[in-house]
Design a protein around this nucleic acid. Structure first.
Lengths: 230, 230
DNA sequence: AGATGTGAACCAATTCACAGCA
DNA sequence: TGCTGTGAATTGGTTCACATCT
């Protein structure tokens, strides 16, 4: 039996590759709006975002028809449509676990606040860091680092659906389990481990060492590797 | 005219998607070796790396035939083969520009030293940070933060082919240009801007805000979004 | 005229399913 | 027998080229 489809008109299922590029388009467009630019062509926008114009147009076509033929895109209108699609028009409370250098960097990062991400909790296992006041965001109020045992309370009180793991590798899975059972359903993981989670939880991973290793692979190919085979 | 191919036997052109996963396999295998495990099946290794066994076998097949049918893979042998392919058996001097919280986190990150990445230079534009001694890596000797104007010297003296940009967005392109003209050919960029570089330079980008936005997109789909269309 | 939006062709990556070897 | 290695089939993503609309 054929699945009942919701409706015909709608754009459903934006490709993952497209979703991954929308934040870049959004950032570039926000700059253009700031600078007072009212209109861009796909050619210009694509160049600024570092992609081809065909790819850009295909990506945007998945959201709808927001351009004007012969003219281009209205920057203000498009930036809003992308923001809405990404969910940036709503408020996303975020809890950060692990307040070492990386956790600090994340808590202070200005790019979060301006896109609806609000740090509502900081948690660390190290007693010497507990109690420290940290300015979350450029104009955010300082918030205190709470002990690891309070993790569930911090998630609940802040109403956070998104958790960031910036702990050492050894602690990551246990922290992850506790975040999930506290109700977090999206996790950004900076620890170099593969996390195991239930299916309904979304996980993304940022691995600093991995990125360098990928660079090194290509670097090695460019230099060295003469490889004259007899 | 057909291009002359180097030889028939050799594995040339490992797919990008495979290269991106090799560091994960390498890390998992290193753990297994450490724990004294001598052999793994593709099934076990895949589970630990968070991929399917078919994908793992296909990936490894691009490197060569390093397994034994009916048995599995010798962990010690395979970890070395992957390390060699990734270039982890050689020494990679790295220069980090921007020594804020993120730069500190990178300089201290233990995962670098153990994989051949050696921080040979730290550079910052802020005079109040210049001169600070930072322990690069867990057992690395402390090295001093040098002023931005010394960037070219730091790259040359350290013999660095890899540069890491951990500066604010506004400074990134200019730092990038200077790294490239100083001889750097691989760049890891943490600043939220699209860098322009010559073709012979490899760039990878890690964008913290982008990752959160991708998470938020999927989170929004899971919750909210009832979208009953009339 | 000029730029978008999109079917069609192309290419890359994943998954399937099994032949081949220890 | 059991697990790897790999052609074949499939799915997903990119590029091309042009019909379409302002």
């Amino acid at each position: 039996m054929p699945l009942p489809r919701a409706n015909e008109s709608s754009r459903r299922g934006i490709p993952d590759a497209t979703v991954a590029r929308l934040p870049v388009y959004h950032r570039v467009l926000a700059h253009l709006v700031e600078r007072g630019v009212a209109t861009v062509s796909s050619e210009e926008l694509a160049a600024a975002a570092g992609v081809t114009s065909a790819k850009l147009r295909k990506d945007l076509s998945h959201l709808g028809s927001y351009g004007t033929r012969g003219v281009g895109y209205d920057t203000e209108y498009l930036v809003y449509q992308i923001a809405r699609e990404l969910g940036l028009t709503q408020d996303w409370p975020v809890v950060i676990v692990g307040v070492g250098n990386l956790g600090h960097a994340l808590a202070n990062y200005g790019g979060f606040a301006s896109r609806g991400f609000r740090v509502v909790g900081l948690v660390d296992a190290d007693p010497s860091r507990v109690g420290e006041q940290i300015n979350a965001g450029p104009n955010g109020a300082p918030i205190a680092v709470r002990p690891l045992q309070d993790l569930e309370d911090v998630v609940a009180d802040g109403g956070a659906a998104i958790g960031v793991i910036a702990t050492p590798a050894g602690a990551a899975q246990s922290v992850c389990d506790r975040l999930v059972s506290a109700g977090v359903t999206s996790i950004l993981n900076f620890a170099p481990v593969v996390l195991t989670t239930p299916d309904h939880v979304g996980v993304r991973k940022v691995d600093l060492a991995t990125e360098l290793q990928i660079l090194a692979f290509h670097e090695q190919r460019r230099s060295g590797r003469a490889e004259v085979t007899a």
